[in-house]
Design a binder for these strands. Structure first.
Length: 271
DNA sequence: AGAACCACCTGGCAGC
DNA sequence: TGCTGCCAGGTGGTTC
């Protein structure tokens, strides 16, 4: 489900309802996520006040008055606030009860997500190794050009590498490359500065627009209150194989890069 | 160091 | 209807 805009949408939706409340009981029905949910999660979290809800890349960071919860939604996870007596559905793995009769419920059919505790995210290996935030002022054309320099891999692989640049998954990588007119197979190290500037701008714009639209991605995406996003209706290449390009009218092509599908317009996107 | 692959899971869908 | 095979939003780990 989630790329950066979806995670940010969840964060914005949940933050006002969570901040200031205390956590109560923690029920772990299934601890086998990407990494085992720590057995002492309840001992760490119960009674703690929620001070903030932040995002770093695609990770949600819940700051408590002692320590932090780290949450990743993987490919199929969602985190929703609901009345504490809401009946359970299949794959509802973890409940974090609040002091106001609500429960923050983690559901993740594929179990690629994570829920962890740390004393300090800045020194946690998963967080410390993350690359630049694409919506920050630190990220711009020159920065992207520097990231690409010396790399022989395809530009799409580079912008999807979370150790270099966070938050750009398959969907937004495809869309950003289309908007920048760059072939996804182009060798990263050979991209000119102006093209890097265009790509950095496209990444920022697409992510920002997707957040404004309330997150998006797939048909099953819902925010922290169960509402769907709508940005998917604006995709130009993702999921449009064989359909006409919005610019030139030629068919959208697909290919495999790494283990994922790339969608692009061979006429409008150049190496 | 960098690049190419694999692994982890379930659900949905196309095709037979 | 029901089976099989394939595909899917992420990312750490292994291998070369």
């Amino acid at each position: 489900m989630p790329e950066l805009p979806e995670v940010e949408t969840v964060r914005r939706g949940l933050a006002p309802s969570l901040i200031g409340h205390r956590l109560g009981a923690v029920v772990i029905r299934e601890s086998r996520l990407r990494w085992p949910v720590p057995a002492d999660l309840e001992a760490r979290a119960r009674g703690r006040r929620i001070l903030d809800l932040r995002r770093r890349g695609k990770y949600l960071l819940m700051r408590l008055d002692d320590g932090w919860l780290i949450c990743h939604l993987g490919m199929s996870g969602n985190l929703r606030l609901m009345p504490a007596d809401t009946p359970l559905l299949k794959h509802d793995h973890i409940d974090l009860f609040l002091d106001d009769g609500q429960v923050l419920r983690y559901r993740d059919p594929r179990r690629f997500g994570a829920l962890l505790w740390t004393a300090d995210p800045a020194s946690h290996p998963l967080i410390a190794s993350l690359g630049v935030e694409p919506l920050s002022d630190d990220f711009d054309g020159p920065h992207l050009h520097a990231l690409c320099r010396g790399r022989s891999s395809a530009i799409k692989q580079v912008i999807m590498d979370a150790h270099l640049l966070v938050g750009v998954g398959n969907i937004y990588a495809n869309e950003a490359l289309f908007h920048a007119g760059i072939d996804p197979r182009a060798q990263a190290g050979r991209l000119s500065r102006p093209r890097c500037a265009r790509l950095a701008a496209a990444i920022k714009e697409i992510l920002a627009r997707a957040i404004e639209a309330g997150g998006s991605t797939l048909r099953d995406f819902v925010d922290g209150h169960g509402n769907p996003g709508w940005f998917q209706q604006t995709y130009r290449v993702y999921g449009r194989a064989g359909q006409p390009c919005a610019i030139c009218g030629g068919p959208i092509h697909t290919l495999r890069q790494g283990a994922r599908t790339t969608c692009y317009c061979p006429h409008c996107q150049r190496r």
